[in-house]
C-alpha cells in the first residue's frame, strides 16, 4: 500500500498562487476557504545576506493526525494510503477537528454546516492522476508521490536534499515535506 506524500521545493516556488487558484476553482470553494495558501516567510537577514521563501501550505495528511482522533462522529478518516479526508454525510460540524488541527487546514462550510479540507484530490489519485495543484504548478515546485517507494521522486528528493516538516515538535508526523 502506498503512503502518499507531497514535497514542496521552495527553491522553485515563485509564489504565483496558481495552485491556490486551481484548487479553489476545482473544488468550487467560497471566498473564505483556501485549502492551499502560499505564504511568504521573510525576507530575513541583512543586505546582502538576505533570504526569503514562499511556503505553500495545505493539509499535512499527518500520520499521527490529531483531527482524526478528535472527530466524535468518525467523519474524519485516514485511508490506508495516508490521505486524511472528511466523509461529508457523517460530519455534524462540531469543529473539533478545526480546533485540533495545528496547521489551520480545515474550514467550516457555512452553507452545508460540515467541515471541508484538502484531500489530495482523492478522486483523481484513485484514478492514478496527480492532485490538481501539482498538475497546475508550472515551476514543478509541488511533487506528489509514494513515500514508501524508495524509487519514487518524493523519496529521492527527501533523501537527497535538506528538508523540513512544519511544526515537527508536535509529533503529528506530517506527510508534506519542504526542501530548501
Amino acid at each position: 500500500m502506498a503512503r502518499y506524500a507531497m514535497v514542496m521545493d521552495t527553491r522553485h516556488c515563485i509564489g504565483c498562487h496558481s495552485c491556490t487558484i486551481a484548487c479553489k476553482i476545482r473544488n468550487e470553494l467560497p471566498t473564505y476557504m483556501i485549502y492551499n495558501p502560499v505564504t511568504t516567510d521573510g525576507p530575513h537577514g541583512t543586505f546582502p545576506h538576505l533570504n526569503m521563501l514562499f511556503l505553500p501550505l495545505l493539509c499535512m495528511h499527518c500520520d499521527n493526525s490529531p483531527c482524526v482522533d478528535a472527530c466524535p462522529t468518525g467523519a474524519s478518516v485516514q485511508t490506508e494510503n495516508g490521505i486524511v479526508h472528511v466523509v461529508d454525510k457523517k460530519c455534524v460540524g462540531c469543529l473539533s477537528c478545526i480546533m485540533a488541527c495545528p496547521y489551520g487546514a480545515r474550514y467550516h462550510n457555512h452553507e452545508t454546516g460540515a467541515v471541508n479540507k484538502c484531500n489530495f484530490c482523492l478522486d483523481r489519485v484513485e484514478e492514478g492522476m496527480r492532485p490538481h495543484c501539482v498538475e497546475t504548478c508550472h515551476q514543478k515546485a509541488r511533487i506528489f508521490g509514494d513515500l514508501d517507494d524508495p524509487n519514487s521522486e518524493v523519496s529521492k528528493l527527501i533523501s537527497e536534499n535538506r528538508s523540513f516538516q512544519l511544526l515537527q515538535e508536535l509529533n503529528t508526523d506530517p506527510c508534506v515535506f519542504y526542501i530548501y
Binding site: A70, P72, V92, G93
Partner: peptide, 21 residues
C-alpha cells in the same frame, strides 16, 4: 446548537476514540 448540523447531533456518540464522544 453550536453544531453546524444540530439535527445530526446523535452522531457525536459514534467514535469511542474521541474525547468528545
Amino acid at each position: 446548537l453550536e453544531l453546524g448540523r444540530p439535527l445530526q447531533a446523535w452522531r457525536v456518540f459514534m467514535n469511542p476514540k474521541a474525547i468528545l464522544t
